[in-house]
Amino acid sequence: MRIGKKLTVLIAVAALMLCSAQGALAAKVIKMHHLNKNGAFDNPSGAAAVVFKNLVESGTNGEVQVQIFPSGQLGKDAEVVQQVKDGIIQLGVHSVGAVGSVYPMISVLDVPFAFPNHAVAYEVFDGPFGKKLAGDITAKTGMKCLGFSDSGGFFQFTNSNHPIKTLEDMKGLKIRTMGLDTHKMLVSSLGGQPVSIAWSEVYTSLQTGVADGQMNPVPIVEFAKLYEVQKYLTISNHLFAPHVWMMNMDFYNSLTPAERQVVESAAKTAIVVSRGIANAIEASDRGLPFLSAKMEIYTLPESEKERFRAASQPVVIKYLEEHFGDEGKEMLNAFLDAIKEASK
C-alpha cells in the first residue's frame, strides 16, 4: 500500500511537471535585446526593459513572457537588428547607428543643434512626426517600430586632450562616432577627425588613444565609466539620438489583438520611464554632480553654440537633401517643422 501511495504521488508530480512544461511551451516569448545593464534605476534602457517585461507579463497573465538580454549579449547592435528582422529574437532597443543599417533615412534626426530642450524632443517623437517616422521604418524594414525612447539625453563631447570651449578647440581631435555618415560629417565640420568604433570597444579605444574623445549623453558617460579615460566634458547638447524599439513583424502579427494592445501600451510606458530615468540620473549623484568631481566640465555659452551650429548644421542638411532625394527632403522638412511647432 505504501509503495502504491508513493507511486501515485510520483505520477501526480510528473503530471504537474508535464502540465507546467506544456504551459511554458504554450507561452509566447519575447527575447529582448538592449545595449546596457539591466536594472530599474541603472540606466534608461535597463529601466525601460524591466518595466516593459513587468507590464507585458502581468498584462497578459503570463501568456506572453519577456526574456531580457542586456549589455549587448547577443552581439553588436547592428547585428542584432538583423536578428530581429530574421525572427531569431523578437524585440530590440537599438541605437540610431544600428537602425541606420536597415533604415538609412534615420539620419534625418542628426541635424546638429536642432532641439532647444528635452520637452520639445519628446513632443516631436510622440507626435505626428514620430508616428510618421515609425510608420516609414515599419514599411521600409518589415519590422514593427514601437516608438522612440531616451538613450540618456542630449549628446555631449568628452576628450582627454584639452577643454573644448571654442570651435577652434575641436581642431584635430579624434572623436569616436557611430557608423553614421551624418555623425562623422558633424565631427568633420567642426574640425575634428571622426573615428567609427563599435560601442563595445569604446572604453578600450579611449584608454589606448585610438580615439581622443567621444560624444554621448551624460548618463552614458557615467555608467560606462568613461570618466576613467576622459578628462574633459563639454555640455554642448548638439544631438538627441533616441533608442528605437523594433519588433519582428511575424511575431507581432502572431499576437492576439489584446496582446498587441498590452505590448504597445507597455512600450509607451517604458519609453516614458526611460525619459524620467535619463533626466533623474543626469541631475543626481550619478550624473553631472558626480562627474564634476571626476572631470573638468564646461558648458558652451549660447554665443559659442551658435558658432558650432553655423559650422555644422548647413553641412549635414545639405548632405541629407542630396543623399536621400525628394523623399529625404520631405522627411527632413517634416522633422524641422515638427520642432518649430513644438517650440512655440
Rank of each mutant, 00 (worst) to 15 (best):
Lys5Ala: 15
Lys5Glu: 15
Lys6Phe: 10
Leu16Glu: 00
Ser20Phe: 13
Ala21Asp: 12
Gln22Glu: 14
Gln22Lys: 13
Ala24Leu: 13
Ser45Arg: 15
Ser45His: 05
Ala48Arg: 01
Ala48Met: 04
Leu55Phe: 01
Leu55Ser: 02
Ser58Val: 00
Val64Arg: 01
Phe69His: 11
Gln83Pro: 12
Ile89His: 02
Val99Gly: 05
Met105Gln: 11
Leu109Asn: 13
Asp110Glu: 11
Ala114Tyr: 08
Phe115Gly: 02
His118Thr: 11
Ala121His: 14
Phe129His: 00
Gly135Arg: 05
Ile137Thr: 04
Ala139Phe: 02
Lys144Ser: 04
Phe148Ile: 00
Asn159Leu: 03
His162Gln: 12
Pro163His: 03
Pro163Thr: 14
Lys171Thr: 11
Leu180His: 12
Asp181Ser: 12
Thr182Tyr: 07
Ser188Glu: 15
Gly191Trp: 14
Gly192Ile: 13
Glu201Thr: 07
Thr204Gly: 06
Ser205Val: 09
Ser205Ile: 06
Leu206Pro: 00
Ala224Lys: 13
Lys231Arg: 10
Asn253Tyr: 00
Asn253Ser: 08
Arg260Phe: 03
Arg260His: 01
Val262Asp: 04
Val263Asn: 07
Lys268Thr: 02
Ser274Trp: 12
Arg275Trp: 08
Ala280Ser: 11
Ile281Ala: 04
Gly287Cys: 09
Leu288Gln: 04
Tyr298Met: 10
Arg307Ser: 07
Gln313Val: 11
Leu320Val: 09
Phe324Trp: 11
Gly328Pro: 01
Ala334Arg: 02
Leu336Val: 00
Asp337Ser: 13
Ser343Phe: 02
